[in-house]
């Protein structure tokens, strides 16, 4: 079999995954796209392993490891998304802009500019994001003190 077939397929799958990561709004869809990218890599690994007839089967072993890690990653990623959703009331990636540079003139503190944006959604969620924010602030303060 021509090696270009799996290689091209892997490339295209990877780019589709890239598009998904960059274009999707829901964090879980982004995670799906990441899975696509990982699978593209897996395909590459398997194809080249077969082509090289590697006695150690490094490519296949690595594929297995990648699959395992992908499973772990999806578990952790989902847990994080859940946590974010609980605190922010949204799992939309483009709304999680807490690290944005504050606009000149806006009065919002630099730590929680995103909070103002999702206030409407956050209201229905009972979890007050203020507490976490305060905690984050405290943690940042502690860190600053420690470094000082």
């Amino acid at each position: 079999m021509h090696l270009a077939y799996p290689a091209v397929l892997a490339s295209l799958l990877f780019c589709v995954g890239v598009y998904g990561v960059l274009a999707r709004r829901n964090a879980i869809l982004v995670l799906m796209s990441v899975e696509l990218m990982l699978n593209a890599v897996n395909l590459n690994l398997v194809a080249f392993d077969v082509w090289l007839r590697d006695t150690l089967h490094a490519g296949q072993a690595l594929t297995l490891f990648t699959i395992t890690i992908a499973a772990a990653e999806i578990g952790l990623g989902l847990a994080i998304v859940l946590l974010v959703y609980r605190n922010r009331g949204s799992s939309d990636i483009d709304r999680l802009t807490g690290l944005a540079e504050p606009r000149p003139g806006s009065s919002g503190g630099p730590l929680v500019p995103g909070a103002a944006a999702d206030e409407d959604t956050a209201d229905e969620n009972a979890t007050p994001h203020g507490t976490t924010d305060t905690k984050a602030t405290e943690k940042a303060n502690e860190k600053a003190e420690a470094s000082a």
Binding site: V18, Y19, L22, A23, R25, N26
Partner: peptide, 13 residues
């Protein structure tokens, strides 16, 4: 379902 970054994402992809 798609964010505003879609055209850019398409271009990059």
């Amino acid at each position: 379902a798609d964010s505003g970054n879609r055209p850019v994402a398409l271009g990059v992809a």
